[in-house]
C-alpha cells in the first residue's frame, strides 16, 4: 500500500490561513492503514485547526468528511456538492488522491496534508518500510522476492557492487546488502544459477513520464485496441 506521513501542522495551517471555511477530506484506504489520513487523522487535524484558529479569536468553520478512496471518481464525485459550502479543501490522501480531488469540477483550492513517501508494507503497528518503486518492470521472480531496484540504494540489477562490507551496504552500513540477501535467498531455494543471468538494462524511460495502464478487457472502451 501507499505510505504517507503527515506534514508539519504549521505548513498546513499557513496554507489554509486565508480561507475561513475549510473542509478536511480524508481517505479511508492506504493512508488510513498507515495512520496518516483516515477518519481518525481527519478528526485530529480538524481539531488542531479549530484549536489553533480559536486562539486568535478568528471565526472559522472546519468541516470533516472521509471517503472510501480519493483515487476513485465513484467516491469523490459527490464531494463536488459538499465543497460548495467551503472556501478551501485540505486532502489527507496520497498525491494521487489530492490531484484527482483537485481536478473535480466546481472544486475549491485543494491543499495536501500529507507527504506521500513510498509503496511499502506494514511491518508492525506504526512501522512501515519501503518495498516497491513502481518501476514498470518486476524482477522479483529472478531475485528471490527481494527487489534490487528498491532495496539496493544504487538500484543495481546485477549486483552486488564492490562496496559491500561483509554483507552490509556501503551506503548505509546498518542495512544488509540487498544483493547479498538475494544471493542467500536464491542459495536457500536451490536456484543460485539465476544469479549468473545478466539482467538487461532497465527501461528507465517508462518511469520518467506519467504512466497509463489500460486493462486488455477495456481496450475497446478507451479506443486503444489494435
Amino acid at each position: 500500500m501507499i505510505i504517507a506521513e503527515r506534514k508539519p501542522f504549521a505548513e498546513i495551517k499557513d496554507a489554509v490561513a486565508p480561507y475561513e471555511k475549510v473542509l478536511v477530506v480524508g481517505c479511508g484506504t492506504c493512508v488510513a492503514v498507515c495512520l496518516a489520513g483516515g477518519e481518525k487523522e481527519v478528526g485530529l487535524l480538524a481539531s488542531q485547526l479549530k484549536l489553533a484558529r480559536g486562539q486568535n479569536g478568528k471565526a472559522s468553520q472546519i468541516g470533516e468528511i472521509t471517503v472510501e478512496r480519493q483515487c476513485d471518481l465513484e467516491f469523490i464525485r459527490p464531494l463536488s456538492e459538499t465543497v460548495a459550502a467551503y472556501d478551501a479543501v485540505i486532502s489527507t490522501a496520497c498525491g494521487a488522491g489530492v490531484q484527482f480531488l483537485a481536478a473535480l469540477p466546481e472544486m475549491k483550492p485543494v491543499f495536501p496534508a500529507l507527504n506521500t513517501t513510498f509503496i511499502g508494507v506494514n511491518e508492525e503497528a506504526g512501522f512501515y518500510t519501503e518495498r516497491c518503486r513502481a518501476c514498470h518492470q518486476c524482477y522479483l521472480g529472478l531475485t528471490g522476492g527481494i527487489c534490487p531496484r528498491t532495496m539496493c540504494p544504487k538500484g543495481l540489477l546485477n549486483g552486488p557492487c564492490g562496496g559491500n562490507i561483509r554483507g552490509k551496504c556501503e551506503v548505509n552500513p546498518d542495512r544488509a546488502c540487498a544483493w547479498c540477501e538475494i544471493y542467500a535467498k536464491l542459495e536457500g531455494e536451490g536456484r543460485l544459477g539465476l544469479i549468473e543471468a545478466i539482467l538487461p538494462l532497465h527501461a528507465h524511460g517508462r518511469s520518467t513520464t506519467p504512466g497509463t495502464v489500460i486493462h486488455p478487457a477495456y481496450k475497446r472502451r478507451y479506443g486503444a485496441h489494435e
Partner: peptide, 8 residues
C-alpha cells in the same frame, strides 16, 4: 505533541 503544534 499535537497540542504543542497547534499552539495550545
Amino acid at each position: 505533541h499535537l497540542l504543542e503544534e497547534c499552539g495550545l
